[in-house]
């Protein structure tokens, strides 16, 4: 685990730098909030309704598909490292795995999950 310690040092230092940047702006910037200034910015129009609204369901679909295929991508990584040792067996095994996923991908495509209308 010792190779992760330098990254912890880097993480702490970069958090410090980011915090310092926020603190600098807070220290030196003027603070004169008014009611008008604190309204949401909508290019000069008076804003109406809540800021966070319901989202189109498309975004959720994309998120679900992403989880599915991202796990596949992560599964590729260890396979790629030992591929030379696995040889032909590894290749055929992976082809079967990809085949299953491609069928799922084509199904999602055919069902219109990838359309944006």
């Amino acid at each position: 685990m010792s190779e992760y310690l330098p990254i912890v040092v880097l993480l702490i230092l970069s958090a410090f730098v980011a915090g310092a940047a926020i603190a600098l702006g807070h220290l030196f910037g003027p603070h004169h909030p008014t009611e008008r200034k604190s309204l949401p910015y909508e290019s000069g129009m008076t804003p109406f309704g809540p800021g966070a609204r319901r989202m189109p369901v498309r975004f959720y679909l994309i998120a679900v598909l992403f989880i599915l295929f991202d796990i596949e991508t992560v599964f590729f990584l260890p396979w790629a490292v030992v591929f030379r040792k696995l040889g032909l067996f590894g290749l055929i095994e992976m082809l079967i795995f990809v085949m299953v996923l491609v069928v799922g991908f084509l199904y999602a495509w055919e069902k219109g999950a990838l359309e944006w209308e």
Partner: peptide, 10 residues
Amino acid sequence: IFKEELIPAK
């Protein structure tokens, strides 16, 4: 650094 930073009321 010397700009005013706004935080929306809501």
